[in-house]
């Protein structure tokens, strides 16, 4: 089973600070990491490969330094690395990005595509589903468990807010996975050596994937950002003081005032 995993390099938002004046992320000095959900996608692909054979290709679109995210995936055990790197891709929204990734996926070839649910920098969760639409593939999103993947079909459990769905799809298909699906392995020391010293990243430009210039980058992006801002900070919390019964009384009164309880 040949699997493509889409990987995004993102700023480590656990470390991120917002510039209070401009309302934008302060990216300086913030380490770049493999998007956390994507690590689960890589792990699931590696497990399927271990079971069914085949090859895992990690695919990313980004500047040259995004190659580090691919190398980390390779150190975990991915076979091939493909980076889509071209100024023509810059400024892409999720529509253009998913189109671009889809074109590259066609060139690589696959039985299955796995994406993380969403990236921690954009939080859109749109790339996976949009890629499936571009490629006309069945999609199973929010996968929390891959039950089976043989006989040309894949069966997954799809997490919902109040339960789960068990969904079967024909292969080729596209999955987006959530963090419950598995525990990603650590890169091995040998894997790190191989990723940096022995393996090459295949870099493709827009021309390499025969991308239609009207569908990629800023020009191919139907959405545009009007304004970005930090949400208003919430008001100060209030600490109730007094004995337990006094505090409870105050709390109930306040909750009734706000119509939380009647």
């Amino acid at each position: 089973m040949d699997i493509i995993v889409c990987v995004k390099q993102v700023p480590d938002t656990t470390d991120v600070k917002i510039d209070p004046k401009t309302g934008t992320l302060i990216r300086e000095g913030v380490p770049s990491i493999v998007n956390p959900d994507d690590k689960h996608a890589i792990e699931e692909a590696l497990r399927l490969k271990e079971k069914f054979g085949g090859k895992v290709t990690v695919l990313s679109m980004g500047p040259p330094q995004a190659g580090d995210a691919l190398r980390e995936a390779s150190a975990m055990g991915a076979d091939d690395m493909v980076l889509l790197c071209d100024r023509a891709f810059a400024g892409a929204d999720t529509w253009a990005t998913s189109h671009t990734l889809g074109e590259a996926a066609k060139k690589i070839g696959y039985d299955l595509i796995i994406c993380g649910r969403e990236a921690i920098d954009g939080d859109t969760a749109q790339i996976g589903p949009q890629m499936a639409e571009h490629l006309e593939l069945p999609q199973i999103t929010y996968v929390r468990k891959v039950e089976s993947a043989d006989g040309g079909k894949i069966v997954c459990e799809r997490a919902l807010e109040d339960g789960y769905e068990r969904v079967e799809a024909n292969l080729p298909a596209l999955l987006t996975v959530i963090s419950d699906v598995n525990k990603p392995r650590y890169p091995s020391v040998r894997g790190i050596v191989e990723a940096y010293q022995e393996k090459e990243i295949t870099t493709w430009t827009a021309a390499d994937i025969n991308a239609d210039s009207a569908c990629i980058g800023l020009d191919g992006s139907p959405t545009s950002v009007k304004k970005s801002f930090a949400p208003e900070p919430k008001g100060e919390g209030e600490i109730l003081e007094g004995s337990t019964s006094e505090v409870c009384k105050q709390l109930v009164t306040k909750l009734m005032d706000k119509n939380v309880v009647r």
């Binding site: 091995s188 020391v189 040998r190 894997g191 790190i192 050596v193």
Partner: peptide, 19 residues
């Protein structure tokens, strides 16, 4: 050991990571 931290500088042909 499984991750290769117990024989890090040993060449690959002898079971290490070649680091």
């Amino acid at each position: 050991g499984e991750l290769g931290f117990m024989g890090m500088t040993v060449p690959k042909e002898y079971g290490g990571a070649g680091m």
